Simulated assay, not measured.
Amino acid sequence: MSNVLIISGHPDLQQSTANRTILGELKKALPNAEIRDLGALYPNYQFNIEAEQAALLKADVIVWQFPIHWYHLPAILQKWLSDVFTFGFAYGLATQLAGKKLIISCTTAGAEEAYQHGGAQNYTIEELSYGYKQTATLCGLEFGEIVHSGGMLYIPGVNTKDDLKAVQAKAIKHAERLVALLK
């Protein structure tokens, strides 16, 4: 299997049933993959650029795992991208990431059927992902697939235990789809 790097872009993974479950399943299924939890490593959003770039250079496949926030990357993942994907490293005269594969693994609180024309979100996940695709193009990355799961909201004290089980089950299925893609 390729060297897989998973960048967890959730700002506080302990608050996310879905993303925490997905990453837990990935750890079990892909024990050699490197998982970098940005929220735990950098709660102040001050990244170790050299360490992050070194991890990217070792990888053959890069996975961004995150919840979509207001149709975009969460702030911590956006800042990581801005700080780490620098001119001369990721794009420009040198594209040191060229040839690596980028896979988007994302969750939404809204149901999957909301992400279609005429649905509550009015656009598909693929249409909302143009920025990720263009980032891959600019950096010479091969854009892989988008693994998306919707309806991944669980709020303790608001939702029921059945809701929790449903989100966990969807998260496990999400991880299985991602693992199948990576193997």
Results as ranks from 00 to 15, higher is better:
residue 1 M to I: 05
residue 2 S to V: 07
residue 3 N to V: 11
residue 3 N to Q: 14
residue 4 V to E: 08
residue 4 V to G: 07
residue 5 L to T: 07
residue 6 I to Y: 02
residue 7 I to A: 03
residue 9 G to P: 04
residue 9 G to A: 08
residue 11 P to M: 12
residue 12 D to C: 09
residue 12 D to E: 15
residue 13 L to K: 14
residue 14 Q to D: 15
residue 14 Q to W: 08
residue 17 T to M: 01
residue 18 A to H: 00
residue 19 N to D: 11
residue 21 T to M: 06
residue 22 I to W: 05
residue 24 G to D: 04
residue 24 G to N: 05
residue 25 E to C: 15
residue 27 K to S: 15
residue 28 K to P: 02
residue 29 A to L: 14
residue 29 A to K: 12
residue 30 L to K: 08
residue 30 L to F: 14
residue 31 P to N: 12
residue 31 P to C: 13
residue 35 I to Y: 10
residue 35 I to K: 10
residue 36 R to K: 15
residue 36 R to S: 14
residue 38 L to Y: 04
residue 39 G to D: 11
residue 40 A to I: 12
residue 40 A to W: 07
residue 41 L to E: 15
residue 42 Y to D: 06
residue 44 N to G: 05
residue 44 N to S: 14
residue 44 N to H: 12
residue 44 N to L: 11
residue 45 Y to A: 12
residue 46 Q to P: 00
residue 46 Q to Y: 03
residue 48 N to G: 09
residue 51 A to V: 03
residue 54 A to T: 13
residue 54 A to C: 06
residue 54 A to Y: 04
residue 54 A to W: 04
residue 54 A to L: 09
residue 54 A to F: 05
residue 57 L to M: 13
residue 58 K to Y: 05
residue 61 V to W: 05
residue 61 V to R: 11
residue 63 V to T: 01
residue 64 W to G: 03
residue 66 F to T: 09
residue 68 I to T: 14
residue 69 H to W: 14
residue 70 W to Y: 15
residue 70 W to H: 15
residue 70 W to V: 15
residue 71 Y to I: 13
residue 73 L to N: 03
residue 73 L to D: 01
residue 74 P to S: 10
residue 75 A to L: 11
residue 77 L to T: 04
residue 77 L to M: 12
residue 77 L to S: 03
residue 82 S to N: 14
residue 84 V to M: 06
residue 85 F to K: 04
residue 85 F to R: 05
residue 88 G to R: 01
residue 88 G to Y: 02
residue 89 F to N: 02
residue 90 A to W: 00
residue 91 Y to E: 09
residue 91 Y to C: 09
residue 92 G to W: 06
residue 93 L to S: 12
residue 94 A to W: 02
residue 94 A to I: 04
residue 94 A to C: 07
residue 96 Q to P: 04
residue 98 A to K: 15
residue 99 G to E: 05
residue 99 G to S: 05
residue 101 K to Y: 08
residue 101 K to N: 10
residue 107 T to S: 15
residue 107 T to I: 03
residue 108 T to E: 06
residue 109 A to S: 10
residue 109 A to F: 02
residue 110 G to A: 14
residue 112 E to G: 06
residue 112 E to R: 07
residue 113 E to S: 14
residue 115 Y to G: 05
residue 116 Q to A: 14
residue 117 H to S: 13
residue 117 H to T: 11
residue 118 G to E: 08
residue 118 G to S: 10
residue 119 G to F: 09
residue 119 G to C: 10
residue 120 A to W: 07
residue 122 N to W: 04
residue 123 Y to G: 03
residue 124 T to D: 10
residue 125 I to V: 13
residue 126 E to I: 05
residue 127 E to T: 10
residue 132 Y to L: 14
residue 132 Y to C: 08
residue 133 K to G: 02
residue 133 K to T: 06
residue 133 K to P: 00
residue 140 G to I: 03
residue 142 E to W: 00
residue 142 E to C: 02
residue 143 F to Q: 12
residue 143 F to T: 07
residue 145 E to L: 10
residue 150 G to H: 11
residue 150 G to F: 11
residue 152 M to Q: 15
residue 152 M to E: 08
residue 153 L to K: 08
residue 153 L to D: 07
residue 158 V to K: 07
residue 158 V to M: 07
residue 160 T to P: 00
residue 160 T to H: 00
residue 164 L to A: 03
residue 165 K to Y: 00
residue 165 K to C: 01
residue 166 A to H: 03
residue 166 A to T: 09
residue 167 V to P: 01
residue 168 Q to Y: 02
residue 169 A to E: 12
residue 169 A to T: 12
residue 169 A to R: 04
residue 170 K to M: 02
residue 171 A to C: 02
residue 173 K to W: 03
residue 174 H to P: 09
residue 177 R to T: 13
residue 178 L to R: 04
